[in-house]
């Protein structure tokens, strides 16, 4: 079995079978991490370009390590995030990078839809590494893999996602991913952070975090963006954390072995108390490790299989 599209632009467009394929492939590739020499020749001669219009150390590093462990050549290309502030337009950037004939272009951009626009302009596979408030598919896939390892199943699980849902690409990708796999997804945040008609994506929306985490098997806390236009979404960090910070008291409402996740980087004691972030139920660091395996699977399925 293969992925249908040449690109990975979002979870919305994937079938359940494709998600399973990626997760199973990631699990097989996981074994490489435990080797002494963490490298296989699978993608030798393939080129992966990391095209990051928005700063990101984690995701870029994760993709780079994934590509290198598969022996692909990687090139990092950082560009200014706005076509207005630089002399080259998105089309020209895309065409000139496309003309170098990379096999995969991994794109991060602070504006929704840019990877999809780019995918129409190049023959290479385009992987969305996060676009604005749209999707972050590799993050959702690594979250799914982490939950799969911890819980062994998706069917019937209750997943609570808490934070700025409107601005979060991680939330959108995870809503699609977990609901497709048979889990029940709840999102929670103040009304200023819940986008219109969010429930039509298949989740249930709450403003009270306590209601959202009752009996939850998985709790995912989103990073609060303190820097941008946040004054209209909540009055202060103090008030936000009072209402939405994941504390031991709130965690008590969830199932006993609930898994605690966070896409990172975390704001300690803002959206998640240090006690919980460092506690036994937190899988935050496992998420990071799984990120490499999932990204290896994505690169393998797009670059390795397409030419075979």
């Amino acid at each position: 079995m293969r992925l249908v599209s040449k690109d990975l632009l979002g979870i919305e467009k994937l079938t359940r079978e494709e998600i399973e394929l990626i997760l199973e492939t990631a699990q097989k590739l996981h074994e490489i991490h435990s080797r002494d020499i963490k490298k296989v020749p699978t993608l030798r001669g393939k080129t992966v370009v990391n095209l990051f219009f928005e700063g990101s150390t984690r995701t870029r590093t994760s993709f780079e390590i994934a590509a290198k462990r598969l022996s692909a050549d990687t090139i990092n290309f950082s560009a200014s995030s706005s076509s207005l502030s630089k002399s080259e337009t998105l089309i020209d950037t895309a065409r000139s990078i496309g003309a170098m004939l990379p096999d995969v272009i991994v794109v991060r951009h602070n504006q929704a839809g840019t990877p999809e626009m780019l995918s129409r302009m190049v023959k290479s596979s385009v992987v969305n590494a996060g676009d604005g408030a749209h999707e972050h598919p590799s993050q959702a896939l690594l979250d799914l893999l982490t939950v799969k390892e911890k819980k062994g199943r998706f069917e019937g699980l209750k997943v609570a996602i808490v934070g700025d849902i409107a601005a979060s690409r991680v939330a959108r990708s995870n809503i699609y991913g977990f609901t497709k796999m048979g889990a029940e997804v709840r999102v929670a945040g103040p009304p200023t952070m819940l986008p219109p008609h969010i429930e039509q994506l298949g989740c249930k929306a709450y403003t009270n975090v306590r209601e959202a985490v009752v009996d939850a098997d998985v709790i995912m806390m989103l990073r609060i963006q303190m820097e941008r236009h946040s004054k209209l979404l909540f009055p202060s960090i103090r008030e936000y954390s009072r209402l939405y910070c994941l504390t031991p008291e709130i965690l008590d409402l969830a199932k006993e072995n609930a898994v605690i996740m966070h896409p990172g980087p975390i704001n300690r004691d803002v959206e998640i108390s240090s006690e919980i972030a460092d506690g036994p139920y937190s899988v935050i660091l496992e998420q990071v490790t799984n990120g490499v395996a999932v990204r290896m699977a994505i690169l393998y399925l797009l670059a390795g299989q397409r030419s075979n």
Partner: peptide, 13 residues
């Protein structure tokens, strides 16, 4: 336009 489509696309409505 603000609505389900803007939410799906992650664009501000």
């Amino acid at each position: 336009n603000e609505g389900l489509v803007s939410t799906r696309l992650g664009l501000t409505g």
